[in-house]
């Protein structure tokens, strides 16, 4: 029987996903302003803030990874033995795009939410917090704990 003691909440990894356009909750009113309509100083301040949050997480021993993704990708699939991969796209109407992510290793889901909220407080146009929604997804470990009955 595959029953086990649950793991004590040691550290767990969470993916903090930043979306370009999302199918999730509605924007907080007044915050849906594309970055190219901010002032250059606002853009600089925003990027500096993101860097600062990453540094804070390094300092607290919780940072694992941060990556940004190019907005345009290509769809690819297998097309049979000996045939080249089939590609498609890009699609302008894609409803949802992943902009990038941060991976953190923290001791509770609440702490993961706190870190996500900190990222979401980044300054936007005129320095006001952007209040953007971030998606927080727990990682799955590979193996169950050792003690299994």
């Amino acid at each position: 029987m595959a029953v086990s003691e649950p793991k004590e909440p040691l550290m767990a990894k969470y993916l903090l996903l930043k979306h370009y356009r999302r199918t999730g909750p509605a924007w907080v009113p007044g915050t849906d302003i594309p970055m190219d309509q901010w002032s250059p100083e606002d853009v600089t301040a925003h990027i500096a803030f993101m860097q600062q949050v990453a540094d804070e997480l390094r300092e607290s021993g919780e940072f694992v990874d941060a990556q940004a993704l190019s907005p345009e990708g290509t769809w690819v699939r297998y097309d049979g033995e000996g045939r080249p991969p089939v590609t498609d796209g890009p699609f302008a109407e894609t409803k949802d795009l992943i902009a990038g992510w941060m991976v953190i290793d923290v001791d509770s889901p609440e702490r993961a939410y706190e870190a996500a909220a900190r990222l979401s407080s980044a300054p936007g146009k005129d320095g006001a917090p952007i209040h953007e929604w971030l998606e927080v997804r727990p990682f799955m470990n590979e193996l169950p704990p050792t003690v299994t009955e």
Binding site: M11, K13, S60, G61, V64, D105
Partner: peptide
Amino acid sequence: AFLVPEPTMGQRISR
């Protein structure tokens, strides 16, 4: 062992 970058673990230990 905990699949985190070394500087992160270094900070954790030092704290």
